[in-house]
């Protein structure tokens, strides 16, 4: 197995809608990547996007600094009553969110569509 299989490079793609944005996160949010995620979320929050959905289906790892980046985004969004919603986390990531009790801060949805609809 090569190094890259342990640390799939972080890739982020944004799709914007009228009142929402979907940020697809692919790969690992590792110790050297958390700043990039935070910058992206702060950028979306600065645009006063009402709802930011993080599509976590292809995110295979996140460290506490990555979780911190999402929390910073959440705090920025709150300035304009915006919201970050999480969609489709892999099992290991879902367990991590539950263990850290971040499921109290963030709603988790089984699909991006449900997250956009908030149901």
């Amino acid at each position: 197995m090569t190094d890259s299989s342990h640390n799939t490079p972080l890739k982020m793609d944004v799709t914007t809608y009228d009142d929402a944005a979907v940020l697809v996160i692919t790969g690992s949010v590792s110790i050297s990547d958390a700043d990039r995620l935070q910058e992206k979320l702060e950028e979306l929050a600065a645009e006063r996007t009402p709802v930011i959905v993080l599509d976590l289906k292809e995110m295979d790892f996140i460290c506490s600094a990555g979780l911190g980046a999402i929390i910073v985004g959440h705090l920025k969004c709150r300035h304009h009553a915006g919201q970050i919603r999480l969609a489709c986390p892999a099992e290991a990531v879902r367990e991590l969110l539950e263990m850290t009790c971040l499921t109290k801060l963030f709603d988790i949805y089984d699909s991006v569509e449900e997250a956009l609809a908030g149901e």
Binding site: S64, A69, I71, H74, L75, L96, M99, T100, K104
Partner: peptide
């Protein structure tokens, strides 16, 4: 703890 949930850091040791 509820009062610490929104703190961006402080989870490393627990994890």
């Amino acid at each position: 703890a509820d009062e610490n949930l929104e703190k961006p850091s402080g989870r490393g040791i627990m994890l």
